[in-house]
């Protein structure tokens, strides 16, 4: 049973086709990686799945339901979680409040005007549990704007997790991280992938080989190769298009 299915997604900017009939499925307990050179259209694809951009043709299905026409927030409500390539946290909120707010989105109506949200123990407990999971709990009280870059990457993930997503879109979660931080985040994701299916965009090949069961290679908006990490590594087309570039 596929959790996330993308059918023939096509998008054009002016004369440039940034997505050419891209199809892929992410099943339960699966981590599907998407690699490709810069400008291949990876983030554009994530934007179309999460609703930042509307595709010209094709469909996005979540749990069998067509969500192609839904606005971003409805997709999130339906269980689509995502992280951003460039950290997008709420700087004037505390770390805890960032995550509690994400939990709040899934915990009944937020059209509540009187009770102070900061005193909602259930939300705070959920947020603390998620923060503990990504190793940020001791930083819960400080402002998100004061976090280090690496910590902000973790918060980014924590916010997505707090929304209890059915599937996670991870847009270069390791971007800008050092080796130690990358390995730590890979450990966390390795544990998570047993519960939440993921679509992972990443340049860090070590992480890809540890996490992904399927890898698709995207070049100029089209999938040129697909298979297990080992198959893709051996694929001449993929090597020429992408891996070759890495070793060069």
């Amino acid at each position: 049973m596929s959790i996330l299915e993308i059918r023939n997604l096509t998008k054009t900017f002016g004369a440039v086709r940034v997505s050419k009939e891209i199809s892929l499925t992410v099943g339960a307990r699966q981590c599907h990686a998407l690699i490709g050179p810069n400008g291949a259209g990876k983030t554009t694809l994530i934007h179309q799945i999460s609703g930042v951009l509307t595709p010209d043709a094709g469909a996005v299905l979540l749990d069998g339901t067509d969500i192609t026409a839904l606005p971003m927030w409805r997709r999130a409500q339906a269980g689509l979680g995502r992280t951003f390539q460039i950290s997008s946290t709420l700087h004037s909120f505390s770390v805890l409040e960032n995550v509690a707010l994400a939990a709040q989105a899934k915990a009944g109506s937020s059209m509540r005007f009187f009770r102070p949200a900061a005193t909602e123990a259930a939300l705070n407990r959920q947020a603390e549990a998620v923060l503990d999971r990504v190793g940020l709990l001791r930083r819960a009280r400080i402002l998100a704007g004061d976090l280090s870059h690496g910590e902000r990457r973790l918060l980014e993930l924590a916010i997505a997790l707090a929304g209890a997503p059915k599937v996670l879109l991870l847009d270069e979660p390791m971007a800008g991280l050092g080796r130690v931080e990358s390995e730590r985040l890979t450990d966390i994701l390795a544990e998570l992938r047993r519960e939440i299916p993921m679509l992972l965009i990443e340049h860090d090949m070590d992480a890809i080989f540890r996490l992904a069961d399927t890898v698709a290679v995207l070049v100029e908006g089209a999938v040129v190769a697909r298979g297990t990490p080992d198959e893709v590594r051996a694929d001449p087309v993929a090597r020429a298009a992408y891996l070759g570039e890495e070793s060069a």
Binding site: S88, T89, L90, S92, L101, I159, G163
Partner: peptide
Amino acid sequence: RVLRAARDNPERAAVMGF
């Protein structure tokens, strides 16, 4: 809280589901 989140970063608020 949602209102302030939307002020600081509307896209983030939408991706959270608001």
